[in-house]
């Protein structure tokens, strides 16, 4: 148990540093952003306490915000998807149900299931982020385009990371 917590803390910092040191510089065509740190939140064990998860989301979001100089934006989006995550997971319960410490990853339920699980959450995260950033719905189509391209980019990178490090957090 404590081993899991230590691993979680370490990977928290790996995801955070990777995001702010490297992926911060990666923006395709000024529209497609890659927010890989969302994967950390998506891969937390299934049956975590929702309060803990929102707290983790908040801390992660705020840490990323400090580097992006966008106080509260990432935290807002992260808390939102952490709140929605459990309801969405309950809708997607596979036949055998979940085990307590399962991470909802590709290695657990396969690529198709993971895509169905991750896509809406990533999309909601990006939508909340970009619309909150611009402070409303002015420039709606441009922002929507940014959201869609960024969602695709982030998803592809999350999937690649899953195949590179399969089952890293599934114990």
């Amino acid at each position: 148990m404590s081993r899991n917590i230590i691993l979680s803390v370490i990977s928290f910092f790996i995801y955070l540093l990777y995001q702010v040191l490297i992926l911060q510089n990666v923006v395709l065509f000024h529209t497609a952003f890659c927010f890989l740190y969302v994967a950390y939140l998506l891969l937390l064990p299934v049956e975590s306490n929702p309060l803990t998860m929102m707290a983790i989301g908040f801390v992660m979001g705020l840490s990323v915000d400090m580097f992006y100089d966008s106080v509260g934006l990432h935290a807002f989006a992260c808390v939102l998807i952490m709140y929605l995550r459990n309801y969405w997971l309950n809708n997607l319960t596979p036949q055998g149900g979940y085990n307590t410490n399962d991470a909802p990853s590709v290695s657990l339920n396969g690529l198709q299931w993971f895509t169905v699980y991750a896509t809406p959450l990533v999309f909601i995260h990006h939508a909340a982020l970009f619309f909150a950033e611009i402070g409303g719905f002015s420039m709606f189509w441009f922002t929507l385009w940014k959201i869609i391209t960024s969602t695709l980019f982030t998803l592809v990178v999350i999937l690649i990371a899953q195949f590179l490090f399969p089952g890293r957090r599934s114990r």
């Binding site: 929102m54 908040f58 979001g61 106080v71 509260g72 934006l73 935290a75 807002f76 808390v79 939102l80 909150a132």
Partner: peptide
């Protein structure tokens, strides 16, 4: 938490 974030923004 969301209200706090909104206040920060």
């Amino acid at each position: 938490l969301e209200l706090f974030c909104a206040w920060l923004i």
